[in-house]
Design a protein around this nucleic acid. Structure first.
Lengths: 128, 128
DNA sequence: CTGAATCCCCAACGATACTG
DNA sequence: CAGTATCGTTGGGGATTCAG
């Protein structure tokens, strides 16, 4: 499977060269590239997950960071949260159409990382 | 202009669901999504830059973080460093073929962020 | 000019405990 | 089950200084 993505010429958008500091793009990029951002977003690709499922999938994330990451993405309109008013609570997270667009672009990146990680860092990697 | 990228089905690579913690992929992903990683990589798209130029382009980065980021990418084989033995020193940074592959995947992402940032965070954004 | 080394501090992060 | 609250730690990251 392959997708055709529009490559926006960055120089057209930012003739000055790079994202100026303190512009909305920087903020959004920071959210996405936050420590757990990519992992959380990709985990929601094509499926709806409950809090607990998400926590288990994103191996190593703490409750605090999961809550914080999800809240940020919810504010950004990338993740939608649906709480069913039942006991015990039942909350479902999924991608919004915008979030779905984003993960579509994230996937090739993750795929490349997965393929190249061992070759780059060596089979024995684990440290920084 | 558009490119066709191979979308590796992530589930094929990681049937368990998500990147296991402490695997090479996580490490490499952390490098790329480090605070200044994406910005530095993208700045080097299609061109060779000197230390000072890089510093000016990646608005807001400190010398320490620029050095640290470049060194990490050099070790990862994503950035190549050429020091001309002259006085005053003259050092050039550019992407390796691997780094070039990576930024090719980064570009659509950055483009999307640039386009959607204002819509998502509102024209008045700037805070977290 | 390029960068290494040092100091220092804030906030990001994790662990734990508690609540609706 | 799905969070919030609180606290403690740590290391990421900025400012500054020094060296080649």
């Amino acid at each position: 499977m392959s997708v055709s993505v529009q490559v926006s010429p960055l120089d057209k958008i930012f003739p000055s060269g790079i994202f100026p500091s303190a512009c909305p793009s920087r903020v959004l990029l920071d959210h996405i590239t936050s420590k757990w951002g990519v992992l959380v977003l990709v985990s929601l690709t094509g499926r709806t997950l409950r809090w607990g499922e998400l926590r288990r999938r994103v191996e190593g994330i703490s409750e605090k960071m999961l809550a914080q990451t999800l809240k940020t993405f919810e504010r950004d309109g990338l993740v939608s949260r649906v709480a069913l008013p039942v006991i015990p609570p039942h909350v479902e997270y999924s991608l919004t159409p915008q979030g779905d667009e984003l993960v579509t672009l994230l996937h090739p990146l993750l795929g490349w990382v997965a393929v190249n990680a061992e070759a780059i860092l060596g089979p024995e990697a684990g440290s920084d």
